[in-house]
Write a protein that binds this DNA or RNA. Structure first.
Length: 385
DNA sequence: ATCATTTGACCCAG
DNA sequence: CTGGGTCAAATGAT
């Protein structure tokens, strides 16, 4: 079942966060209703932003409600079944470097153990959400590496067939410390040296503080992307629960690296939205970077549509499930009154997003939600020379 | 000394 | 069998 690292603890955290998010959503709705005329349009994304805002809030609320229900179910089920490692979890540290304990290097036993562990890990990974982002770095030097502000530790590199550059494998720095399952693969595009394909897998369950632009006011690390990611992992669980045999891993790909939200969320110079959103409190300039709850919701919805990049670079809907989640999204779509966020974005940013159009084509109106896998939009500030 | 990266070997899925 | 993903010893950086 939900193999997410922790187990009971995570569930509680999840519940807590979800409850929090639900509340925030409620406030969001009220807020937008109350301030609909108070705020300059810029804050609402322009005109109907308010309605849209409200719709999102409503959906968010709904989603959280469902999520909580399911989470409770998971909790209940988990209590009895208690996942695999529940019992055997002796060495949760698992990392315990190497043998050094037995005589020589590796005994058959070690090998077996390792294999088991590996297998177990693979198994676990399989169920984790997976998505890809294209990140553009400011300079195309070979040294350049996309930095998403989170702490990763490189654990491998491999030459990939057909790719000019090797692929780097990273895992969360706190995997051992906090059992965070997040990993990512970074592959430089052979077409554009400044572009990287970053495939994330697994949600961060750790509480590392995503630091980037120093930014002035910072807030309690609390929610932020931790909750976002948690939600994503949660969504994954949901998915698994809903349709046991959905594709093990889905990939959401966003081909844009300039995440310019409708109302230019980040006041130039002030810093990345991530920190702003972290607060979930202070004044936010865009609905998308507002309260963490909202952000989480957005991400959640975004993740709902999973595309699988095929070899040719095309995107295909890979979701085969017709879970309620889909309904939620659809509802959200409907509620947001078919706004054409794509257009909004395009206009606001002044860029064009061919991919967005594609999304639209695929009946994917969730555009307003940037893939706020936090870090990424950091690069949005850079203009490709 | 501690922690991160490098790098070849290993394992598994397709 | 091959390619992709991970492990872990060796090595480097702080």
């Amino acid at each position: 079942m939900q193999d997410s690292a922790g187990g009971g603890g995570d569930i509680h955290l999840l519940l807590s966060i979800l409850a929090d998010g639900e509340e925030q959503a409620r406030q969001l709705g009220e807020h937008s209703a109350a301030h609909d005329d108070g705020r300059p349009s810029a804050y609402t994304g322009g005109g109907r932003g308010e309605e849209y805002y409200r719709g999102v809030a409503r959906q968010l609320q709904c989603t959280f409600g469902r999520a909580m229900a399911v989470a409770r179910a998971i909790e209940a089920a988990g209590a009895g079944a208690s996942g695999s490692r529940g019992t055997t979890n002796t060495g949760d540290r698992s990392d315990s470097p190497r043998s050094a304990d037995e005589s020589s290097g590796r005994t058959a036993r070690d090998v077996v153990a390792q294999r088991e562990r590996h297998h177990d890990m693979i198994k676990r990974r399989k169920g984790l959400p997976r998505w890809t982002e294209k990140i553009r770095v400011p300079d195309a030097s070979l040294e350049a590496t996309p930095d998403d502000g989170l702490s990763w530790r490189k654990y491998g590199q491999k030459d990939i067939l057909g790719a000019k550059f090797p692929r780097g494998y990273y895992r969360c720095t706190y995997r051992n410390a906090q059992g965070c399952p997040a990993t990512k693969q970074v592959q430089r595009s052979d077409a554009d040296l400044a572009v990287f394909d970053v495939t994330y897998q697994g949600a961060h369950t750790c509480h590392q503080k995503q630091r980037h632009a120093s930014t002035a006011g910072d807030q309690p690390p609390r929610q932020t992307d931790a909750s976002v990611e948690l939600l994503m992992s949660f969504k994954n669980d949901l998915k698994v629960e809903t349709d046991g045999l959905a594709p093990p891993s889905t990939t959401t790909t966003f081909h844009d690296q300039h995440f310019c939200f409708p109302s230019v969320p980040f006041p130039a110079g002030v810093g990345p939205p991530d920190d702003a959103s972290l607060g979930g409190g202070g004044g936010f300039s865009s609905p998308f970077v507002s309260p963490a709850g909202s952000a989480a919701g957005s991400s959640y919805f975004s993740m709902e549509h999973c595309y699988e990049p095929s070899r040719g670079g095309q995107f295909v809907m890979s979701r085969g499930d017709s879970s309620e989640l889909h309904e939620v999204v659809s509802a959200a779509t409907a509620t947001s009154s078919t706004v054409d966020p794509a257009a909004a974005v395009t206009n606001a940013g002044g860029f064009d997003y061919p991919l967005y159009l594609h999304h639209g084509e695929l009946a994917d109106p969730h555009l307003p939600f940037p893939p706020l896998f936090g870090p990424a939009y950091m690069y949005g500030q850079y203009r490709d020379a």
